[in-house]
Amino acid sequence: MPANPTGYRFLTANAVNRLQNLSLVARTVVDGFVAGLHRSPYHGFSVEFSEHREYSPGDNLRYIDWQAYGRTDRYYVKQFEEETNLRCHILLDASASMAYGSGEVTKFEYGAYLAASLAYLMIRQRDTVGLVTFDADIRSRIPPGATTAHLDRLLVELEHTRPSFGTGIASTFHALAENIKKRGLIIVISDLFDDEREIFRALRHFRHKKHEVIIFHVLDRYELTFPFARISDFVDAETREKIQADPRYVRREYLKELNAFLDNLRRGCAEGFIEYVLADTAVPFELALTSYLDKRKRLG
């Protein structure tokens, strides 16, 4: 990726331009404390009417609906939905498998670009965003914040993170699910090379905690198509295990396995109301991101 005028490696001018008119609107209700674009389950006194409830002593008299009193001869208090800010946690996989890349960028770099862009987007719309990098365990955790200085901190952290070690998605997610108290948006950026059942269990843990979850499943073009031709020793990026294979023979089975894995993920995500986005590193990340956000905006 070329050096960009933003001064940060993973936040490109292209991405910034493209994200100018897009906002990530949480589909479900999230907790928040800063008024923003997101609906809050906590009824307060805001612009948007929610429901009536019977007056009880102590309620502010300014919220009594006098028209309702005229119709029913009872005191009702107007309740309003509070627009609150979004608390977003970006979970970026920094395991060794993410270091693989057949093209210009590795999966990790691609994920980092995504994370930086999303963080920028969030903070621009005054949401709070935090970053968790993990491999077999949580490697770093930056709690959500909404200031420009916070964005700077996130971006610096992204730049200093190098993918290494194995993957332990399930255990890490369980730990995080317990730690993130307030409801919010969980964005997972990973190649998800782990046991699918464990992954789903962990994701369901997030859902159980009322979080909205979006998964950016980052895969390399070579992983998606397996275009190799020569018989080769394939070395696992994490375990260094060697597998000699003749691509002419294994391609079909490989793609079958991979597609089964992807189908499982898609199905599982759909069942668990988890947004699933397959991100191919051969597609420019800003294109992938904006098209996803566009689609999401259209769907409301």
Binding site: S97, M98, A99, Y100, K107, D191, F193, L219, D220, Y222, E223, F226, F228, R230, I231, S232, D233, F234, V235, D236, A237, E238, T239, E241, K242, I243, Q244, A245, D246, Y249, V250, R251, R252, E253, Y254, K256, E257, L258, F261
Partner: peptide
């Protein structure tokens, strides 16, 4: 010679490759 001199390729999605190689080994 070709068997011995097979090039090494670092790859991330070996979990699928392993299964595929195991399944196709006999036919190959």
């Amino acid at each position: 010679i070709y068997r011995r001199k097979a090039p090494q390729v670092v790859f991330a999605a070996t979990r699928f490759l392993k299964v595929a190689a195991r399944r196709t080994a006999r036919r190959r």
